[in-house]
Write a protein that binds this DNA or RNA. Sequence first.
DNA 1: TAAATATTTGGACACTTGTCAAGATCTTAG
DNA 2: CTAAGATCTTGACAAGTGTCCAAATATTTA
Lengths: 197, 197
Amino acid sequence: MKRDWTKKTTRGAQRTLDAFTAAMLDALTGKSFEQITVNELCEKSNYPRATFYNYFDDKYDLLHYIWHCLNRQIRLEQYEETEPEQRLFVLFDRAYDFIEAHQSTLNRIIKHNAKESFLLFHFRVQLGDRVREMFDPNICRYRDQVPHEIIADHYCNTVLLVLEWRFLHGNDGSKEDTLRYLEHLLGALNAKSLHEF
Amino acid sequence: MKRDWTKKTTRGAQRTLDAFTAAMLDALTGKSFEQITVNELCEKSNYPRATFYNYFDDKYDLLHYIWHCLNRQIRLEQYEETEPEQRLFVLFDRAYDFIEAHQSTLNRIIKHNAKESFLLFHFRVQLGDRVREMFDPNICRYRDQVPHEIIADHYCNTVLLVLEWRFLHGNDGSKEDTLRYLEHLLGALNAKSLHEF
DNA sequence: TAAATATTTGGACACTTGTCAAGATCTTAG
DNA sequence: CTAAGATCTTGACAAGTGTCCAAATATTTA
């Protein structure tokens, strides 16, 4: 990470970042991530190698940047307006809709990256960080019995589990079905709150 | 993966595999995985580069081999003798004891690899594959309400979550405490079976 | 034991990687 | 509009990567 992605960028820098992002996403629809080289990304985007390294440490860093941008598109800020017990549903709802909207691109990518399970791993890590903020110690129920970090990670894991089952493992099914699975797995912890919704 | 690790190796081959394993583990106690080069592993183990590439595709492949060997040391075969409902406890029990036995080595490694979260990711993937075998469709309860792959992954995730909290995130606590957290998180799905144990 | 077969070794090769510093170009405040 | 300052481009570099092949060594088979 050569720059702070949360800071504003100049128009020129944004153009360059967008070009590398597009080059990577384009490359990913044709081959696996491991096969992609920095040279190739520079050829696709018509930038010299040194420019790439101006922005990113390596191709993994670019991937993290891309996940970061996509992650930002999942708007979870509204959870502040909702009851704590319903934040889990907000997370599921927003993430489901977001992934569904990008499903065709996603399918093209995983077609060539079925075995590169770490590809989406860092997307998961980043989302996990945000979810952990949603379920801080003051909000988590059962905080006397189980450490709140465990609760937060467990929520995050479980939401991502059902989403990955639905979108990554080629399973069809309605949003309602998927939600039902989620409710079942977390039944013990907050059955009431989810069912009430 | 240049060879089938499940097949028997000759004495000479085993000596070579052991040497590269030792070299990698030794290197990992001094620097991060990313900083380690194949050249370095060959110098440490006094083997030529070509020999390394005889056995492994790259350093990631060696890491997978190491996880594979460690994974084999966690004996889960006994689950066949137990009631299906208690297999989850067997998994927790064996994995806890195993990690505890290797805690000092583990600590030295994560000291230099705190941010390389993918380091243990593939260990997790491999263990996940074994856990999925433990909870096949014929065994999982609630199989009519939630797909069994989801149940199996959820079990695996949750066991690994509490173990990672305990051993990777620097939290102290007894095995009993850790088990209690696990029971709580999975309470809805099999509270009875675990409590009965 | 000796010949046949397989594996290991060392060096050479083409390629990728990440860094650097000097120069070119774009931005923006005055 | 212009000059200072920021940003981008460029080619060269040292080091790492993965493959190949022929010679050396080890293992198996007759």
